[in-house]
Every structure is written in structure tokens, then in C-alpha cells.
């Protein structure tokens, strides 16, 4: 169904743009540019998974070292995802950004990450075949 795929892409890119808009607004409205760090976190989040999936041999079930490397990548990805949510809360608690900026940047980050995840979910199966 190419039509449904096209609509999905348009909707996802729209949501991604809204997410980036929220994050950038949360910086620009209060002239405090700390929440931009969140974007770097979301960009970096899939990197450990990606590297470790290249290091490991997933067909190897006898030696569990391959699975251990995969687990390490997943652990680091989980670490980075929660870091993206925790960083604005930390900054707002310390008074470096305002609380509305924190809310906007958390919602924007959730939208960005939801887009990345759903994009991977929609288009992963096509790669396998």
C-alpha cells in the first residue's frame, strides 16, 4: 500500500517538525538555550544500539557474549532516552530554565522520539525481505 505509506511519512514528518518547534521555542522564548542539549541526546540515543548490533553476531546462541554486547547497547540506549527526559527536569529544578520551558521541551522530546520509534516500526519489516 504505497498510499498509506505516503500518508504515514507525511504525518510522521509533521509530528517531527512540531517536536523540533516545541524544543526550539522552549529555548528561544526564555533566551536560555540549555534545552537544545535534549536534541543531541535524541540524536545520540540510537547510536549505541547501532554500533553494538554491528559488533555482535545474533546467530550465535552457543556463546552468549554476542547477546551481552547487544544488551550493553540496549542498556546505553535506555540510559540516553531517560537522559533526554531527565535533563530538562534537572535544569528546571536548578532554576536555569523556566518550568513552562521544561514542559515544552519534554513534550517536544517525546514527540521526536515517538516519531523515530514509529518510523523504525513502520519501515523495519520492508528491510527484512
Amino acid at each position: 500500500m504505497p498510499q498509506a505509506g505516503l500518508k504515514t511519512i507525511i504525518a510522521l514528518s509533521f509530528v517531527l517538525a512540531v517536536g523540533f518547534l516545541l524544543v526550539i521555542l522552549s529555548c528561544a522564548l526564555w533566551k536560555a538555550y540549555y534545552p537544545l542539549l535534549v536534541v543531541a541526546t535524541y540524536v545520540l540515543a540510537p547510536v549505541p544500539n547501532w554500533i553494538c548490533s554491528h559488533c555482535a553476531n545474533p546467530d550465535d546462541f552457543v556463546e552468549s557474549s554476542g547477546a551481552a554486547v547487544l544488551d550493553l547497547g540496549r542498556f546505553c540506549t535506555g540510559f540516553l532516552v531517560v537522559m533526554g527526559l531527565a535533563l530538562p527536569v534537572l535544569l528546571a529544578h536548578a532554576g536555569m530554565i523556566e518550568v513552562p520551558a521544561m514542559i515544552m521541551s519534554v513534550i517536544g522530546g517525546l514527540l521526536i522520539y515517538g516519531t523515530i520509534i514509529s518510523f523504525a516500526m513502520f519501515f523495519q519489516e520492508e528491510q527484512e525481505f
Partner: peptide
């Protein structure tokens, strides 16, 4: 479970950093 463990550890680290 592995993702959740990473998230929990991250939460612990950032609570202390906070």
C-alpha cells in the same frame, strides 16, 4: 527489561546529578 534497566540507572544518575 534491558531498556528499562538502562532507564532506571539513568534516572538514578540524573537524580543524584540533580
Amino acid at each position: 527489561g534491558v531498556y528499562a534497566a538502562g532507564g532506571l540507572f539513568s534516572a538514578a544518575f540524573y537524580i543524584l546529578l540533580d
